[in-house]
Amino acid sequence: MTTTERFVDGVRLAPRDLPPLPTPAEFATVEEERAHRKQKLAGALRLFGRFGFGEGVAGHITVRDPEFPDHFWVNPFGRSFRHMRVRDLVLVDHDGDVVYGDQPVNRAAFVLHSAIHQARPDVVAAAHSHSPYGKAFSSLGIPLAPLTQDACTFYGDHAVVADQGGAVVLDPEAGRQVAAGLGPHKAAIHQNHGLFTVGRTLDEAVFWFLSLERSCQAQLTAMAAGEPIQVRHEWAAYTAEQNGTPWAGWFNFQPLWEEIRISDPDLFD
């Protein structure tokens, strides 16, 4: 043994080849992919409940069906986020009709999410709830500032939507206005209402929502304390390029998925 060699528990310390970072799963059949998306949806709704995003019957997450892309799975109206199970989820078409399941759907969920899914074929999932800091921040009618590394994830990739702000969105045309305001971005701050996020995977959409909510909290806290200093444009743009990709959103959700699937195994029922 040379003097430079080191061992821990009998294992020689040396650089080693590691497996590549994981990527979203691929599936052999649409049935497998459908089951996976529904499991992730039930788990994501439970996480929303765990983070205190429930506000009575408000809030919804949708995920596109892999076989019928003009249909999406959504949580039923008036059911607790914290106790959502795979078997509770319902499938609706773009006319708002329930085609699978026996529970009603929030009309606002249909109007907003249907419009977003129709306007954005790239969107597989969309998330919205009346989260406390998102609601508070939306009343300011301003974009999120690049105050932190996390906030820079949304730099140049979110919109402030004033149309229908504060109103219950029940008319399809109102939903289309909100979808148009979102544009090509991954997130929207709907004035006097709250936050919307989208993604190419459910994991991505849900993590963006969680991160945007916390970034709103951080900015409100900083503004209450003084005059926040913003990250320089070139640094904010670089951080957005590195941390704001669909894969980054998906990957950041994986620890949360591990937590909920282990702690709440009944979500798979």
Rank of each mutant, 00 (worst) to 15 (best):
L212C: 04
V111H: 12
S114K: 03
P104K: 10
I142L: 14
V90M: 10
S215M: 04
K135I: 13
I142C: 10
R87P: 00
V160P: 08
Q177L: 15
A187S: 05
S138W: 04
F209S: 01
D88G: 15
A108Q: 10
F154N: 10
L147G: 15
S131N: 05
Q103V: 01
L112S: 07
H190K: 06
N192M: 03
Y155Q: 03
G175R: 00
R176M: 14
G156I: 08
Y155V: 00
R200A: 14
D88W: 12
R107M: 03
G134M: 10
T201G: 05
C216E: 09
L210T: 03
V111M: 10
F209I: 04
Q118G: 02
D95R: 14
Y100F: 13
H158F: 01
H83E: 07
D95C: 07
Y100V: 14
L112P: 02
R85L: 04
A205N: 11
D93E: 12
Q191D: 02
E173A: 13
Q177P: 01
D122T: 13
V124D: 00
S131R: 00
G183L: 01
F110N: 03
G101N: 09
G199R: 00
D150F: 02
T197Y: 03
A224T: 12
P121L: 12
A151F: 01
Q177T: 09
T201L: 05
D171V: 05
R87N: 13
F154I: 06
P132Y: 03
D97C: 09
Q164W: 00
R87W: 02
D122R: 12
Q217L: 09
T153E: 09
T197V: 08
G165P: 03
